[in-house]
């Protein structure tokens, strides 16, 4: 039996990526995509890769009843409209930040508060590698942030395998592509200004620090650079453990955490051209690459993680979580690998 789905806020990059994934997903039928600005226009007119879809954007005030509603609206919209979303669908998957943090204090400290804090306990964080056991049957699923996802996937094995306990110093530098900024754009996002940059756009106080702290149980010093990619987030995490850690310890932790994960690959100094995680190698796929090196003279570990921010960092993660929540085989609709060779993704 086909599961009906709608995408609310379908004109943005994330909405388009979600429509692409759902269109190719054998369990889902997309019956509605909404857009306030493009209502009554074809989906293919906004997303040229979807010109084959026989679907026009509709007004978000007129929500169809569906099995699953994916919300790709700007932050703040889902918390305001959550009752209408839940009236329209048995399962809501929200790709904004509105339900991804577990307590109101995080929203008070890092956002502009929260309208419906009582619902935060109902929401399940979408990242299956972290929260798979709580996703089956969940009816409010919150996809993680792209930079936080890259960081969490990279660091997670260190916390489950007695390498870190939570008080150690961690410095994270993430390089991100322009699609993270959304389809709206502004002066800083114009091609002339954006092309070729290595621009620190969030040197301190990035909101995703809250997500990392909430789900890894530790604080991190976090900086994000905008670089000349369209897709991709690449996290470099400098970790200073209290005790010496060998490469064997690291392999034990990373293999133990990820060897059976369908969407995590390890790339850690092996042969070939791409010896460490590389956004180009995962572009267009739901795969996260993770890797590391040990640096005994500086009592440091360096952890690398690369994702496609549109996939593992948002739409792909949302579909992966929906698969688990609804009891589908969890890789369904997400089997595509990236391209090689490819230019800047």
């Amino acid at each position: 039996m086909t599961t009906t789905a709608s995408v609310v806020g379908g004109t943005g990059f994330t909405g388009g990526e979600l429509l692409r994934l759902l269109d190719g997903h054998p369990e889902f039928a997309v019956v509605q995509a909404t857009s306030r600005s493009e209502a009554n226009k074809t989906v293919g007119g906004v997303h040229p890769n979807l010109r084959h879809m026989n679907l026009r954007f509709s007004d978000p005030e007129d929500l169809d009843s569906v099995d699953v509603l994916f919300a790709c609206t700007p932050h703040g919209v889902s918390m305001e409209r959550i009752d209408r979303f839940r009236d329209a669908a048995g399962t809501v998957v929200d790709l904004s930040a509105d339900f991804r943090l577990p307590a109101a204090e995080y929203y008070d400290d890092h956002y502009d508060g929260h309208d419906r804090p009582e619902l935060l306990a109902e929401a399940e964080y979408a990242l299956p590698e972290l929260n798979r056991e709580n996703l089956p049957g969940a009816d409010l699923v919150a996809a993680g942030g792209c930079n936080a996802t890259a960081t969490i996937v990279g660091l997670l094995p260190l916390f489950g395998h007695d390498i870190l306990s939570g008080g150690e110093r961690i410095v994270v530098d993430v390089k991100v592509g322009s699609s993270e900024g959304g389809a709206g754009g502004g002066a800083a996002a114009s091609h002339a200004e954006r092309s070729g940059v290595v621009r620190p756009y969030a040197p301190t106080g990035h909101r995703h620090e809250a997500e990392i702290e909430a789900y890894l149980g530790t604080s991190v010093s976090f900086t994000v650079h905008a670089v000349d990619m369209i897709r991709g987030a690449s996290a470099t995490c400098h970790v200073f453990p209290d005790d010496p850690v060998s490469k064997g310890d690291m392999w034990g932790a990373y293999r133990g955490q990820y060897e059976d994960e369908p969407f995590v690959r390890m790339a850690s100094g092996g042969g070939g051209v791409y010896r460490y995680p590389e956004p180009k190698a995962v572009a267009g796929s739901n795969v996260a690459e993770v890797g590391f090196e040990v640096d005994p003279p500086n009592e440091r570990l360096v952890v690398f993680s690369a994702i496609d921010n549109m996939m593992k960092g948002s739409a792909g993660q949302a579909v992966h979580a929906a698969n688990v929540a609804l009891g589908f085989e969890e890789t369904t609709g997400l089997a595509a690998t990236g391209f090689h060779p490819i230019g800047s993704p």
Binding site: E259, M266, A267, S268, G270, G271, G272
Partner: peptide, 27 residues
């Protein structure tokens, strides 16, 4: 020897041959 994962090998290996690990990519 790098990551500890099992490496599938072909039958007619020769000393000096280079193979790679499917888990960590090490040569």
């Amino acid at each position: 020897p790098e990551c500890g994962a099992g490496v599938d090998l072909h039958d007619d290996l020769e000393v000096g041959e280079i193979v790679d690990c499917a888990t960590c990519g090490a040569e």
